[in-house]
Write a protein that binds this DNA or RNA. Structure first.
Lengths: 350, 350
DNA sequence: CCGCGCCAATAGAACGTTCCAAAAGACAGT
DNA sequence: ACTGTCTTTTGGAACGTTCTATTGGCGCGG
């Protein structure tokens, strides 16, 4: 059990020697070519097993001038939504025989630039990126200019024609509002999310459109930006409850914010879904097990991840470095945080 | 802004030609050698910029017979604890100039075996692995035998001498129990975690030791295994509350289970920290923002991740493929879920 | 017995770096 | 001018694959 000395890698030529064939033949066997006689194939495979050969992908990639690596750059891996997305993407790539490469930028454009550079040097065949906040429009020009297929998820980059895979933010927000209207709510707030976020802009747009459709004045509806965290959600709630004539319901930027809002409500002794209706966005796994279970817009994260991966794979295989955007379906997952028809305490302040 | 044709990579020799030097000199410049005259260096750098050269790490690794890639295999990236760990590890590797490679196995030993194979083929310089449940003891023999530095996190593999970095599970559980004893609890349960989990065994050991220390019979204390999820926690709680003379407090396998236990308590109308004390393990970010904020054993995940990375890096640099285990410090983070001194309703059933 | 086609196997040149050994320059001392 | 020392630059052989073109062997029809 002593540490084995780091003996150097056994290569294809040593296999060849052991099996009494040429390295070309070994290469053929390795890629499962039809044109090698079964008896030789077996001999080679035996040698491979006996000598403990391990394939050197680096060398292969060098020669073939294309690689089996694909990159995925995630802006915040600790965010469960992003983690689920990453896992969905990874699964598709693995299944397709590519080696995915996850990197986390923690919302830092600087780190992101480093990571992009590294991936390019590593020779990725394609890239999926969920861009960090504040990413400059030209961040991906090098990669795209070199013909590397790139797909963005969730967030769009201004001015460039890079395909985007994301949920239908406008529709989702509309569905949420319509539900609340149905329940009798008339004063509905939009809570959370960075003010400069594109995703938030889309969701807010759907939110306002739904209000306008119902004959309400969208401009009078309050929208409070915040960091998209639990604390941010709780704070946004405080702000909004301090107003005179406060709302009775909120559509939240995402589930995390919604959790914060619920937390804030309970701190004030209000039961989410009874005194105040809350709807989230994303349907992270946790939403189902929260207390109360969170009504939210389900977006099928894993599905989006898989779709993004498929898009990149098709771009790689066809050689085209462009593709259509994909707007994923969404639906309202009704749970308890939005309550039943017009809870009695909802108008407690009216 | 039309898509640029995928013109082939510009290489070191084209830079050399453009700058009027040999490719050796360009290579020297690339690695910042002292012995190249500043004027030539500038000329080369100018050419690099002008031609848009990008370094080919694959080729470099091939020649140098060592790579700058390191792997990290995580058993469940969607688990926030693991995600935080991954991020900590990644950060250290990046800072050290290595390219980390995250892979998620989703607790599948099969997937894990594929991933390990892939990483070997890719030529990782080192590996950190948080092994999937049910990993066979010999899963890493190939890698270790080939002299690749491997460090395990959290989980240990039987029989092999692979360094492990993890928190002090025994001490953590002991601290939790001692706190509960101090608060007056006498019937304390251990809830959650797979029955065959090594980590659970250690935590349970500390749990029992603390009870024994206090003169209580550790064997009479109830320990219920479960899947380590919210549902698992809620179920374990149900089981334990159904017993006659049920416990008044629980130490949970981890925070996620603890959240489930709190959820279960609330469903029964019991306020965690008042009617029943709950202590978690890990201190994931969410614990602080839960309702009520979760008392838990804080383990400094990011710190553990960084430590694991440092260990691998040292192994890589020294060429030794062995290192000492690291048992990370833990401390009790007191919040509301464990309540104050002996809540009045705790003995409601006695 | 020749030429043809087919199958199985092979030689050897790539791929883009690094690095060793050695060449070329520069300068000083004799 | 020659030697020696130091600095700067260079040629060319690796690294472990893939792939194109080619060889050798064999069976078969003429």
């Amino acid at each position: 059990m002593a540490a084995a000395p780091p003996r150097d890698r056994v290569t294809i030529v040593e296999i060849a020697a052991a099996a009494g064939v040429s390295k070309s033949t070994v290469s053929l066997v390795l890629k499962g070519s039809e044109s090698v006689r079964p008896s030789t194939r077996d001999r080679v495979n035996a040698a491979i097993r006996d000598l403990g050969y391990v394939y050197n992908r680096g060398a292969a990639n060098l020669r073939r001038a294309r690689s089996n690596m694909v990159g995925m750059i995630i802006h915040d891996l600790i965010n469960p939504f992003c983690a689920e997305l990453a896992v969905g993407i990874e699964r598709s790539f693995q299944a397709a025989g590519y080696v995915p490469f996850i990197a986390n930028t923690a919302e830092s454009p600087v780190r992101q630039a480093e990571v992009i550079k590294l991936m390019r040097e590593q020779g990725v065949a394609g890239l999926i990126i969920s861009a960090a906040r504040g990413t400059p429009d030209e961040a991906l020009d090098g990669l795209v200019g070199a013909g590397v297929p790139v797909v963005m998820t969730m967030r769009r980059l201004g001015g460039r024609h890079i395909p985007v895979v994301g949920p239908d933010n406008r529709l989702g927000a509309r569905l949420a509002v319509e539900r609340l209207l149905e329940l009798g709510h008339r004063r509905i707030a939009f809570l959370g999310g960075y003010a400069d976020s594109g995703v938030r802009a889309e969701r807010l747009e759907g939110f306002r459109a739904a209000l306008a459709n119902a004959g309400l004045d969208p401009d009078s509806a309050v929208a409070i930006a915040s960091v998209p965290t639990r604390e941010g959600g709780a704070q946004a709630l405080e702000t909004v409850l301090a107003q005179r004539n406060p709302p009775t319901a909120a559509v939240c930027f995402n589930d995390i914010v919604a959790f914060g809002v619920c937390l804030g409500l309970r701190r004030r002794g209000i039961q989410p879904g009874r005194g105040f209706a809350v709807i989230g966005f994303d349907d992270v796994q946790e939403a189902l097990h929260a207390d109360p279970p969170l009504t939210t817009i389900a977006v099928d994260v894993m599905g989006l991840g898989e779709r993004a991966a498929q898009t990149v794979l098709r771009m790689i295989e066809t050689g085209r470095n462009t593709a259509e955007d994909h707007v994923g379906a969404v639906h309202l997952a009704v749970r308890e945080s939005c309550g039943g028809i017009m809870p009695e305490r909802a108008e407690r302040r009216a």
